[in-house]
Computed example of a mutant assay.
Amino acid sequence: MNIMDKIKKIFLNKEFIFFIIIGVINTFNGVVFSFIYSSLLNENIAFILGYISGLVVSYILNSYITFKEKLAFTKFIKFAISYIPNFIIQNIVVIITFNILGLHKLIAYCLAAIIGIPVTFILLKFFTFKK
């Protein structure tokens, strides 16, 4: 099997489609949570808290819908670890777009939310929910 076939096998399936749909829901949740928190807190802290809030919802939805597995504390820890690279990428995007470029915080949160999807899916599939 060549590299293109492997990539197709990983990303062209029902799991990835559900992951994307849940990602859209999670993106909305994370942006809304971040925006709400930003009315009380610094924008960067608000982003972190919004990210964590969205992460909890995402774990529940991905467990039941995408990977069809029961909730477990150890899987939640692996899930959170799988999102560390995505969090770092997104936080850098918020810092660059909001703090350096001066874009509106809502735009910064939205741009940050769409970065890192493939990396996160691979980590979830092969680390968190591997069978």
Rank of each mutant, 00 (worst) to 15 (best):
N2T: 10
N2H: 03
I3C: 03
M4C: 06
M4S: 09
I7K: 00
I7L: 13
K9F: 02
I10R: 07
F11I: 13
L12I: 12
L12K: 11
N13H: 09
N13P: 12
K14N: 13
K14I: 11
F16T: 01
F18H: 13
I20M: 13
I21V: 14
I21Q: 11
I21H: 07
I22C: 15
I22Y: 10
N26D: 08
T27H: 00
V31T: 09
F35T: 15
I36A: 10
S39V: 06
S39F: 14
L41V: 06
N42A: 07
E43A: 10
N44M: 11
I45P: 04
I45A: 08
F47T: 01
I48Y: 03
Y51T: 01
L55M: 14
L55D: 07
V57E: 14
I60Q: 08
N62E: 07
T74H: 08
F76H: 08
I81L: 15
S82F: 00
Y83P: 00
I84A: 00
N86T: 05
F87Y: 12
Q90T: 06
V94L: 11
I96N: 11
T97M: 10
F98E: 06
N99G: 06
I100Y: 10
G102T: 05
G102Y: 06
L103V: 05
L103A: 12
K105D: 09
L106P: 11
A108E: 00
A108Q: 06
C110Y: 05
C110T: 13
A112R: 03
A112W: 09
A113D: 00
I114G: 13
I115T: 13
T120V: 03
I122C: 11
K125F: 03
F126H: 15
F129E: 01
K131Q: 12
K131L: 09
